[in-house]
Amino acid sequence: MPMFIRLEAGVFSLAEDPFTAVGDEQSVPPGDVIISLTRFQAEGEALMGEGRAVGVRLESHEEVEALAYDLPQLAVVALAFPKFGDGRAYSYARLLRERFGFRGEVRAVGDVLREQAGYMARCGFTAFEPADGSTLEDWRRASQRFRHAYQRSSDARSPAFVERGE
């Protein structure tokens, strides 16, 4: 099984990926799958009815609101980075966590580089598929680079303005 990096209760670990990412033109294999929004809208209910865990891959041009109704049933929302400079998914991740209260896995897929690790963790991502060969240690270090943060975000960190008041 392929591996990915998981963030749980502030701890990064390597984990085997129980999910299969399925393209729209592939047939759906048995087991837990991550499928496109289009496929989810057509087949999602049936697939979930089979008792397996289903995740949705959201492309950066797709609206996160399209998932609002189904979120309680979803195991994973995989947010795609077509290029690492395309930052829309950071907003989607925050909305999933802060507006829609999504408690499942938010996974970064696509052009996912170590330099984004800290931003992703702060915006509520909890799973990462690095495309640059980053090791667990690389990823952990990069995401914990800054001892302080200036803003409130989706993570539990106290921003500087709260730290200062303590």
């Binding site: 690492f84 400079g85 395309d86 930052g87 950071y90 907003s91 925050r94 984004q116 800290g118 931003y119 992703m120 702060r122 915006c123 800054f146 943060a149 200036y150 803003q151 975000s153 500087a160 303005f161």
Partner: peptide, 13 residues
């Protein structure tokens, strides 16, 4: 200045 520095959501506009 503080708010915009390494803002996690808005660094890749």
């Amino acid at each position: 200045r503080q708010w915009s520095t390494v803002h996690p959501e808005f660094n890749w506009l």
